[in-house]
């Protein structure tokens, strides 16, 4: 096994390394998540500092989306703790979590497709209705990132192009004035050019002080646009560290495409993949 492979326990250390723990905005501490009989997450830990950009990468079905859902309250972890800004939010309903300042743009965008762009933004502002912020100023501020949406304000969200829909998704998430923006599969179904535009916008937003957590199937894109990253495989964190270091790690590619198949003349082997084993005990 390569030396950079870390266990769950130490991944926690790596990821908090270099971050003052007091500055941690979000701490995910060894959570398990189950879908009925299926265990989707096994002791996943993660920390995000204020204003940081973090990526969660891994093959399909590795548990990335599940992790995001657990953070935003769509799923309740069966074990472990999640704290945001020092307060526990694990198991809290999603409609309460968003009021604390976490905005989640789910995979597949999940816009209100039958509603207009403007109405989608109004819905995004829902959690802030009583927070004493003016809807108009918030909307104008958000729209500055997405001039195209201004033109489309009265069009139904379902009629937008894929890129515009994704922009609306980000805009809608920003309407709640979040301190942590979670984006799931920004690139899904979009042309590379559009994706890089969207990543530029995320960088802008991040510069304004919002922490960003992205999940991305395309690992190189994700690592190029974040400070730190964690690699999930089969519901476990198998690698974590600064994004730049991970790009060079051979274990990363193996996580995605497997080891080389045996040569035809070589003796056969058991079809076993040497994924890193965890040291912590599963209970």
């Amino acid at each position: 096994m390569s030396p950079s492979v870390v266990t769950t326990e130490s991944s926690h250390d790596v990821i908090t390394d270099g971050n003052d723990s007091a500055a941690a905005l979000l701490t995910v501490d060894a959570i398990d998540v189950h879908y009925g009989p299926i265990q989707a997450l096994r002791a996943v830990s993660l920390t995000i500092g204020s204003g940081e950009r973090v990526a969660l990468v891994g093959a399909n079905g590795a548990g990335k989306t599940t992790t995001l859902r657990a953070i935003s309250g769509l799923l309740a972890p069966t074990r472990g703790r999640i704290t945001f800004d020092g307060e526990p939010i694990g198991g809290m309903a999603a409609n309460k979590v968003v009021q604390r300042g976490i905005a989640h743009l789910p995979e597949g965008r999940e816009l209100f497709f039958g509603l207009s762009v403007e109405e989608n933004l109004r819905a995004g502002f829902w959690s802030q209705r009583r927070a004493g912020r003016a809807y108009k100023s918030q909307r104008d501020q958000v729209m500055d990132h997405f001039p195209i949406l201004r033109e489309r304000a009265h069009q139904a969200a379902g009629t937008l192009s894929g890129g515009e829909q994704q922009m609306l998704g980000v805009a809608r998430a920003l309407m709640s004035n979040p301190r942590l923006l979670i984006v799931d599969e920004l690139s899904l179904g979009l042309a590379p050019k559009i994706v890089s535009q969207l990543f530029d916008i995320l960088a802008e937003i991040n510069r304004a002080g919002t922490a960003v957590l992205i999940v991305e199937q395309f690992v190189h894109m994700a690592l190029a646009n974040t400070d730190r990253a964690a690699v999930l495989a089969k519901g476990e964190v198998v690698l974590a560290g600064p994004s730049r270091d991970l790009l060079a790690d051979p274990q990363l590619i193996a996580t995605y495409l497997g080891e080389q198949a045996p040569k035809p003349d070589e003796p056969p082997r058991r079809p076993s993949r040497r994924a890193p084993k965890r040291t912590s005990n599963r209970t």
């Binding site: 769509l74 409609n95 989640h104 497709f113 509603l115 819905a123």
Partner: peptide
């Protein structure tokens, strides 16, 4: 339109 997305907006 979308129960889950509504929840993410803070709507119960």
């Amino acid at each position: 339109d979308n129960r889950r997305a509504a929840r993410l907006m803070g709507i119960d």
